Amino acid sequence: MQESCKTLEKEVSPSLGVMVYQLVQTVSYQQKEAAALELLVRQKNSLSSMSGAELKQFLPEGASHVKALPTRRSIAAQELEKRIRRKKWEMKLIAFLLDNSLYLVWCHLDYYMLRAIPRSRFGDSTSGVLSTLSEMSWQISADDVSNLKQSLVSVFNDSFSKQLIETKKDHSAIERGFVEAMLRRIKRLIQFAPVK
């Protein structure tokens, strides 16, 4: 999948390739951090069965001199709770980044597919000249659209889509719905992109 993102970066406008790459990397990072959060929660839940030597890895630097086992457990529980809170905050930031990356990919793709394709492809007699001055700098060919479509199809496959939806499994239905709607819109734009 990373090769597809790098191909996308080279072959089309860098902003879209960079955003797709950011999205893919963020999904991967979120999965890794979700596993780390689950490990922290499991460790906190198993504190009561840990020995003093096992607890030592969870004690802050200044607390290693404490000998009483109940006190060590209490300090380790507080330290793990701090780590869990920090990890949950990080997960919220990752979710924010995922949502915004997905939205930006959709916005760029929507504009690219609907505004930047030469008008001659739609039967307009302007022979490839775009309608406004701001769009005149776009030199888009049917090959560009075809390359974009192929690159995006290889990134937004079923496996990646499932991973992306999985990142929202513990979130509200509204947040899951947003990701699902963005994926549907992106896939629809990719599917119905005019190619030669």
Rank of each mutant, 00 (worst) to 15 (best):
S151N: 13
I174F: 13
M136A: 14
L164I: 03
R185Y: 05
K149T: 06
A142S: 12
I140E: 06
F156L: 03
M182P: 00
Y112M: 11
S141C: 03
H171V: 05
P118Q: 01
R115C: 12
V145S: 06
G177K: 02
D144P: 02
S134M: 13
Y111C: 11
R115W: 08
I174C: 08
K168T: 14
S141Q: 07
D143G: 08
S134K: 12
L189S: 09
Q139F: 11
V145N: 06
S120T: 03
R119V: 08
L130M: 06
N157F: 01
R176L: 06
T167H: 04
K162R: 13
F156P: 02
S134H: 10
V129M: 12
F122R: 07
S146P: 03
P118Y: 04
R184N: 04
S146T: 15
Q139L: 12
S159T: 11
H171K: 11
W138E: 14
L114R: 15
I186R: 02
K149L: 02
L189N: 08
L164H: 00
D170E: 10
G128N: 02
I186D: 04
Q150E: 15
S159C: 07
D144T: 06
L148M: 14
L148S: 07
R188L: 08
R185F: 07
S125C: 06
I186S: 01
Q139D: 11
R185Q: 15
W138A: 14
E180Y: 01
V179L: 01
S151G: 15
I174K: 15
R188C: 05
S127A: 14
S131V: 12
K169Q: 10
R115M: 14
M182G: 01
K187W: 00
S154W: 05
Q163S: 13
D158T: 04
Q150K: 15
L152W: 02
D143E: 15
T167M: 07
F122G: 05
E175R: 10
W138L: 15
F156H: 02
D158S: 09
I165T: 08
T132L: 12
S161W: 01
S127Y: 12
E135Y: 05
M182F: 09
R188M: 09
I165Y: 00
S151Y: 02
A173Y: 06
I174H: 11
I186G: 02
K168D: 05
W138F: 13
A173E: 13
F122A: 05
N147M: 10
L133Q: 15
F122K: 04
E135V: 04
N147C: 09
D124K: 02
S137K: 14
V129F: 11
V155W: 00
K169A: 11
H171A: 14
